[in-house]
Design a binder for these strands. Structure first.
Lengths: 144, 144
DNA sequence: TATAAATAGGATAAAACTATCCGAAATAAT
DNA sequence: ATTATTTCGGATAGTTTTATCCTATTTATA
């Protein structure tokens, strides 16, 4: 459903959020290890999230990535997805037509509109806090 | 959401169904033109659909692709998607975990399960007949 | 100030996906 | 039979995505 980059970005954000609760800044190396992702590639993705001000980075010794505690609950999955994969998942036609709307719908326009709308709502209503707490309580996992 | 190959496959199948109603076998060239897809690439995709017996092909002069009339309404979008993109869209984890189920869920397992289930249902309940009839009546379009 | 630890970012490589080319095989019509 | 048409399938090329490498820059600590 999402690109690899986006999957890594979501997992990394959750891991950063999780640690930011305890005031722990985490390094790229630690993140990549804990979410089981390629380090250098993950670095690129985190750079994008930093540029879009979804996470903070601190350079130099004892540096790393963090999210201000008070922001964790207001960061939605949609922001992360949008930063990495763009918004084509919302607006793009299910069959790749350049023009596809109510007036000129592709054959599966209606069917996809429903699914995409649900996906959109879900991404916009799911925040990092919920996801991080589930990891903390052991209800969910970031890797196998 | 789907690969280009899958998009072409769905559109091609609809166009073939549409013509098979009238007993018209259609050539690769005509299909590619009418769904606005690259010819040679579309050929590969149609070959896969033929191998999976979703459409029929007839070689040689006056050959082409067709779907037996009586089968059109029983061919589901899910069969086409499955033939081209595989079934990862149904079973794959939203965050790419190799193991992700009720017992060991990824952070967005619940949220995605709902969306994916709806998508699955939609693909399994939408058949080529419905889509072809909408094209025929001018209610939907295969290209811009 | 020197050093070590980290992120930033450009360049490059590998893999996957998309697309093209061309000859082989099949088939209808002449 | 020969020819024209059309799908089949292997080989190859282009593009995008994924991944790696290396150097520069930043910063805390000794």
């Amino acid at each position: 459903m999402f690109s690899k980059a986006c999957e890594y970005g979501i997992k990394a954000s959750i891991y950063i959020a999780l640690n930011s609760y305890d005031g722990n800044r985490v390094s790229l190396k630690e993140i990549a290890k804990e979410i089981d992702s390629p380090e250098a590639f993950t670095a690129k993705i985190l750079q994008a999230l930093v540029r879009d001000r979804i996470i903070n980075s601190v350079k130099g010794a004892y540096g790393g990535f963090e999210i201000p505690k008070e922001q964790i609950s207001s960061i939605k999955l949609s922001q992360i997805v949008n930063s990495i994969d763009g918004d084509s998942i919302y607006h793009g036609c299910g069959l790749g037509l350049n023009v596809c709307d109510e007036n000129h719908p592709c054959p599966v326009h209606e069917q996809f509109a429903t699914i995409r709308n649900d996906l959109k709502k879900m991404l916009q209503s799911t925040n990092l806090e919920q996801l991080a707490l589930d990891i903390k309580s052991g209800a969910s996992f970031l890797k196998v």
